[in-house]
Structure formats: C-alpha cells, structure tokens
C-alpha cells in the first residue's frame, strides 16, 4: 500500500496531474488480466500503417500534426488524403509511435540476460524506451499535451499500461500477487515522470534523465523493501499477541 500511495504521489507531484487521473491510471492497469507473450493483432495494418510509418519520418520537423499525416500520405501518392481515415488525427499518429517503440523493446532481450537484478533490467528497459524519444524530444511537450486531452486520455493511459506490462515481462519479473499491480503502477508513474523530465533535459546525451531513472527505481525499490519490512513486523506482532493469548489459556 505504501508503494501504491507513493506511486500516486509520484504521479501527482511530478506530472502535475490531478489525483483523479492517478486513480484512472490504476484502474486502467487493474483492468488488464495478464500479459500475453503473443502480441495483440494490431488494429493498424496494411496501407494505414504504411501511411503512419511515412508520417513518422516527418515528425521531427512537423511534430505530431495533421500535416505530418498528410505528408506521409503524399509520399505514397495520395495527393489529398482525407481526415476521415484517421479521425483522431495526431493521437492516431502518437498511438502508432507508442506501439512501434514498445515492439522495439524486444530487441533488448540478449543484453538483459547479462544483468542479474530485476531492477537493473527495468532501468535499462525504461532508458531504452526513452532513447526512442531522442529524435522528437522538442515535440515531447506537444505529445504529452495531446495525450492528456479528455478524448484521448483512455487511449494514452492504455498505451502506458501496456508499456509497463511489457517492461515487467521483459525484465522477467516473477510477481504473481498484488505486488504485480503496484509494480506496474510504479513503473507507469516512473516512466511518465522520466519522459516529462526528458522534455526539459539539456545535458549531453540526456545523462541527467538516465540518473533520474536510476534514482527513481532505487527509491521505489527502497519503498518496496520498507513495505516488506512493515508486513514482516506486523506479522511478528500478530504472532506475539496470539502467543500471549494462548499462554493465558484462551
């Protein structure tokens, strides 16, 4: 519970989001049953994906805009692509970007086997995902703003949940109890905070962002240890009380 509360505080403190959104994050996470090794069949496929793929080439210059999508269409010969194809416009492009970056994390598997600690693997995965933002870092504020539109919130939170799910899966986290939910919530919060931090990071090669991620993971780990200590203490106290009562013949 401490970790859960702490995760909410992290979210509220670092992202400036209202607490009800924190609750939404957690309920969105809770809605998922399990992580499947087989990726869901993508809702974006065929020529639609091609257009978005081409549009992403223009994002470094144009940002996540309708113009980028139109440019993506023109590259394939559609001189005047209709807005009807992508009703959500920029959010469709952002969703595709998230999907692509999440799939790319799989390539990290060989490297992860060389890291003994789960928390170390999580740091590398989050850092690798943030590296994917390198080329579009000047558009991160715009991207985050679009993700927080009420009409886009459900989609963006769903993407965030899927990302934390993916990270824990690739990190080979073995949790099978309630901890699973708290860890996913914590990773979602840490990733969001790190991404926001990255949007203002001017250090060479985003070193400050890397340090930020490491610090946050260590902090979350410490909280988790504290949680375990408290539970252990509680358990001990309960046993002590039971012993006392039994010694009185009750």
């Amino acid at each position: 519970m401490l970790t859960l509360r702490s995760a909410c505080q992290l979210t509220t403190k670092n992202l400036g989001l209202h607490k009800c959104i924190s609750k939404t994050v957690i309920s969105a996470l809770g809605r998922r049953g399990y992580h499947s090794e087989n990726y869901e069949t993508s809702k974006i496929s065929g020529k639609k994906a091609l257009i978005l793929e081409n549009a992403l080439e223009h994002v470094p210059q144009l940002g996540f805009t309708e113009d980028a999508i139109v440019q993506g269409g023109q590259a394939l010969g559609y001189s005047n692509l209709s807005k009807a194809l992508f009703p959500s416009g920029p959010m469709d492009l952002i969703s595709y970007f998230f999907l692509k970056q999440r799939y790319a994390l799989s390539s990290l598997k060989p490297h992860l086997t060389t890291i003994p600690e789960t928390s170390g693997r999580v740091v590398q995965l989050i850092w690798s995902r943030l590296q994917g933002n390198r080329d579009i870092v000047q558009h991160l504020p715009q991207m985050i703003a679009i993700c927080t539109y009420p009409s886009n919130l459900r989609k963006s939170l769903s993407s965030l949940a899927e990302l934390s799910d993916e990270i824990l899966y690739l990190a080979q986290d073995k949790s099978a109890d309630f901890q699973w939910y708290t860890k996913r919530a914590a990773i979602s919060a840490i990733y969001s905070a790190s991404e926001l931090f990255m949007s203002r990071d001017t250090s060479p090669n985003f070193e400050a962002t890397y340090n930020f991620v490491q610090h946050r993971i260590q902090h979350a780990k410490a909280l988790n240890d504290l949680r375990n200590d408290v539970l252990e203490w509680g358990s001990f106290q309960l046993n002590a009380v039971r012993s006392i009562l039994r010694s009185r013949g009750i």
Binding site: G73, G77, Y78, S79, N80, L81, S82, A84
Partner: peptide, 14 residues
C-alpha cells in the same frame, strides 16, 4: 464495387 471503381485513390466512401 461500383463505389470503389469510380473513386480516386485516396477517395472517401461514406
């Protein structure tokens, strides 16, 4: 079928 035939590439059917 006919709608598809008469539309230009990039055209919208609604």
């Amino acid at each position: 079928e006919q709608a598809y035939r008469v539309l230009k590439p990039g055209g919208v059917f609604s």
